[in-house]
């Protein structure tokens, strides 16, 4: 009986659903992808720290304070004057960490842009043309990938001389291997689609097909990889600076701060902790953002 009484079915798709207010959509999205937003938040804070470093730092990052060291020459711990303590030369660690964010972001982002350009170029050309072009370019990529990036960059910086721009350049021209491989794989898949053939039938040139037709279709993975790449490159920069061939003291960089912290770790552990913590949080932020973007851009993920 009951089954015969059909109620008018609710018309879900017929009328356009009332547009949700933006804030509501935003919070739903935050609930769906909490890690993505955490990563984004970290990065925003990082950028603020770097940009506002001259304003919000309590001290000049290179000023050596006599009251930063105890009478026996040990760095003082966190206090009102030095919120995160002082380092082995009596400089304020908070100020140095904030200024260090400038270096890390600068190197991380610009070297990634260089990686991006080179990797996309090599990967697209290799995947699109195939044959011997592919072979040559991918073998070069294999060679690039066969060396540990840090070691390779060390060699290059050793030749060029240590400076911010040389570090950035070295990481930029050496770190595009993974990008090239990923892009090539994506291009191989996309170039078989009928719309690529259709575009060719319209008289489009190879360059046009590669960069106007195929590239926009693979932009998702490229963005994800680039984001992860920034974190990676920040680490390499820290590594180089730690080894003394990156950013040269007294310019603060998390890498050279950690190196300096190593010497006083026994008596003043905060000299090591805080730059280390900053580095971990920054890289974590980029990794969370990258993973989150991957989830969002994954077509199999229908949540959004």
């Amino acid at each position: 009986m009951a089954a015969m009484q059909f109620e008018t079915p609710p018309a879900p798709a017929a009328a356009a659903p009332p547009a949700k207010p933006f804030t509501k959509k935003f919070w739903k999205s935050v609930r769906d992808f909490p890690m993505l937003y955490l990563g984004a938040l970290i990065i925003v804070l990082l950028i603020l720290a770097a940009v506002l470093a001259p304003v919000i730092s309590p001290h000049n990052p290179t000023t050596q304070f006599s009251d930063g060291l105890t009478e026996s020459g040990i760095p003082v711990g966190p206090s009102a004057k030095f919120p995160l303590g002082a380092d082995n030369l009596g400089r304020d660690i908070l100020s140095r960490v904030l200024y260090g964010a400038q270096v890390s972001l600068l190197v991380g982002v610009i070297s990634t842009v260089i990686n991006l350009v080179l990797g996309v170029l090599v990967g697209t050309v290799a995947g699109y043309f195939g044959g011997w072009v592919d072979n040559v370019l991918m073998r070069v990529t294999d060679i690039i990938l066969a060396f540990p990036l840090l070691l390779f960059a060390m060699a290059l910086v050793a030749v060029l001389g240590p400076s911010l721009w040389n570090v950035l350049f070295a990481i930029g021209v050496l770190g595009w291997g993974t990008m090239a491989r990923v892009v090539r794989g994506q291009v191989l898949a996309v170039k078989e689609f009928e719309y690529v053939q259709a575009e060719r039938a319209l008289g489009a040139s190879n360059t046009r097909i590669m960069f106007r037709v195929i590239l926009p279709n693979i932009i998702g993975p490229v963005i994800v990889l680039s984001t992860l790449n920034v974190g990676q490159n920040i680490l390499v920069e820290a590594g180089l600076s730690f080894l003394g061939i990156g950013i040269q003291p007294p310019t603060p960089s998390w890498g050279n701060m950690i190196e300096a912290g190593m010497q006083t770790y026994q008596v003043a552990p905060w000299t090591l902790w805080f730059p280390g913590l900053a580095l971990v949080i920054a890289v974590l932020g980029f990794n969370l953002l990258g993973d989150g973007l991957r989830d969002i851009l994954d077509p199999r993920n229908t949540q959004h």
Binding site: F193, E194, Y195, A198, P216, N217
Partner: peptide, 19 residues
Amino acid sequence: RGNEISMIFQEPMTSLNPV
């Protein structure tokens, strides 16, 4: 191509660029 001789393909679902 596309100017004097042009072509229509079989699969309308895949012959347009989605982006």
